[in-house]
């Protein structure tokens, strides 16, 4: 059995990027008509255009919010059998070992912290980038493939009561560093 997550993830990214293109086009179109608008009645005629141009999130935010939702649900399942996690460091270690193994297929390779709420997690062969050619050729494109995992991690931490900002850094595919910055309560 092999649920085709990688292929689903790819299609979500493609679909999100297409929506992004639609959103940019809607913004341009609104720009061409804005000079002729006179008051609320005119704006109402273009309601769906305005919604598309300004109320929809951009591609990375959309991918991240999908990941957040999944992460918060998954961490409940993964942590069901675990002993109670008390300290912030225990929670982050749980994410790096048990959660990472269950969801990404292996543990992280390295975890560092300054003991002031900042953690740097390194994974030398991150799962969503494994099918890329190795090296720095696709470092730019790989950003979209990390938005969902960042949301997943932020959601998992949120499910364990830690509010954090998660951002990725790539120097060479498929090695990724995730920076976790815990926010004050």
């Amino acid at each position: 059995m092999a649920f085709p997550f990688d292929i689903l993830h790819l299609e979500i990214i493609r679909s999100t990027l297409e929506s992004e293109k639609d959103r940019c086009e809607a913004k341009e179109k609104f720009g061409t008509i804005i000079d002729n608008l006179n008051g609320p009645a005119d704006i109402e005629k273009y309601e769906s255009l305005v919604q598309k141009a300004f109320l929809h999130a951009n591609a990375e935010t959309k991918l991240e919010s999908i990941g957040f939702r999944v992460g918060r649900q998954l961490v409940e399942k993964v942590s069901k059998e675990s002993p109670k996690l008390v300290t912030e460091l225990e929670i982050v270690k749980f994410i790096c070992k048990d959660f990472w193994s269950s969801v990404f297929g292996k543990q992280v390779d390295n975890l560092r912290t300054n003991h002031q709420g900042v953690y740097v997690v390194q994974d030398g062969r991150f799962t969503t980038l494994r099918s890329f050619p190795e090296g720095d050729q696709y470092v730019k494109e790989s950003g979209y493939f990390l938005a969902f995992p960042c949301g997943l991690l932020r959601g998992a931490l949120a499910g364990l009561n830690i509010r954090a900002i998660v951002t990725p850094t790539i120097e060479s595919v498929p090695s990724v560093k995730f920076h976790i910055q815990v926010q004050p309560k």
Binding site: M1, A2, F3, F5, D6, L8, I66, L74, G105
Partner: peptide
């Protein structure tokens, strides 16, 4: 091959969130 053994739950929850 290992990376394809993602849990069913990851796949289904991702689909639902999407």
């Amino acid at each position: 091959a290992d990376s394809k053994k993602m849990s069913a739950e990851l796949f289904c929850l991702t689909y639902g969130a999407m």
